[in-house]
Write a protein that binds this DNA or RNA. Sequence first.
DNA 1: ATTGTAAATGAACGTCATTCATTTAGTGAA
DNA 2: TTCACTAAATGAATGACGTTCATTTACAAT
Lengths: 229, 229
Amino acid sequence: MPPVPVKGVGTKTAPRRAGRPPRALLGHAQITRAALRLVTRDGYKALTMSGLAKSLNVAPSALYNHVSSKQDVLLLVEDALMGRVDVSAFTERPWEEAVRLWAHSYRDVFSAHLPLIPVIALLPVTNAPQTITMYEAVTDGFLRAGWPQERIINAIVALESFVFGSAYDVNAPGDIFATGELEDAAPHFTAAVARRGNPAGHNDADAAFALGLDAMVAGLAATLASATR
Amino acid sequence: MPPVPVKGVGTKTAPRRAGRPPRALLGHAQITRAALRLVTRDGYKALTMSGLAKSLNVAPSALYNHVSSKQDVLLLVEDALMGRVDVSAFTERPWEEAVRLWAHSYRDVFSAHLPLIPVIALLPVTNAPQTITMYEAVTDGFLRAGWPQERIINAIVALESFVFGSAYDVNAPGDIFATGELEDAAPHFTAAVARRGNPAGHNDADAAFALGLDAMVAGLAATLASATR
DNA sequence: ATTGTAAATGAACGTCATTCATTTAGTGAA
DNA sequence: TTCACTAAATGAATGACGTTCATTTACAAT
């Protein structure tokens, strides 16, 4: 599939003249709620337009009065989930700790929503208010830590890239590095996989995430220090 | 969709007793080549079982004698592409530079093959010889640089996670951070986006990738130094 | 010649997302 | 009250797609 056909959320809930009582069964809010419930209960395989319609007691075609495609539904869900990413540390904690807490929260939210990662990574944030709110809070935190404007977006994108990749890793099976019959061709790799050591209480994905996050945060902090000197 | 239904490559090309001349039109090699050609020419949207069959002058159902699902085709393509990732620097260059060159090559190969990222990130490497070969070379490079066995896989996974996320970012549209009507709600973010500055010759994705890679490599090197002290 | 079998065929299925002509039911105006 | 308007819902239809399966094909060993 190609770089995801990109549009903003299409059909909006119709603008309604003031005291007009609503008679619609559907709206962005209802669709988003139902989609989120469906996905949480049965996973993304169950998120079909018919399944979504059924969960709303409505015909599938009715959805298209409020949304212009399934992509639009994914966009709605994505933005709703962005509201769950915890950015509070950026106003309460020093930069390094805040970045770590934000990255952890971000990864945890989307590791349960992998199909949304291409949506976040490739679609404009336009018309995604919660997404924009998150970026604003993060940018603000960077500014307060003394980051120069010109570098902030690149730093956020770099951290985000690591978060997205790590979200995939959370869902990797435990035997993802099992070499099988080809073990003999890769002795060093096989040995390293066998001896992969993780701190107490950390699974493989958490250990790799912690290592990479510590490295990147430390490296970025060093970058900042040398840039502001 | 759920964490990708996972299997190894299914139906193998039948083991053939010695002097038996092949009469088959199809095989893993032909399928892989045709899929790669199709994808390179027309993108992943064009990679359908019928399209693939047509490009091989064969009925779609014939593919299933050699491959057990479309996932299998993706796995074949993925492994073929892994052979294009340049790991030569690990035998010729110091660790930091080798990691940088490897990561760049890895990102460049798969930024043109985004739909394979979930495949790489979630499916066991078993029966993916080129993939295993790549990991062996990388592991070997880490060992030679003095990395302790127990940390190597976590470091590779962390770097890979960043590479995968960055591959998505390569395909992000230029206006991905355009806030549109919600500009007023995110003044700091909007300003930072407007002032995003990139070194000469670098586009946005390259600048973010370079920043994150430098940070992570420096951070990992520091980790190594303190671990071996 | 006969038999066995891997591989190819073509018709079918079920599942999707999406479109469209039509109907429904409130609303504001006459 | 009546009427006309319209947003929203319906249900049937369409076209892609991945996959299955009974059947046939054509080569190789016997």
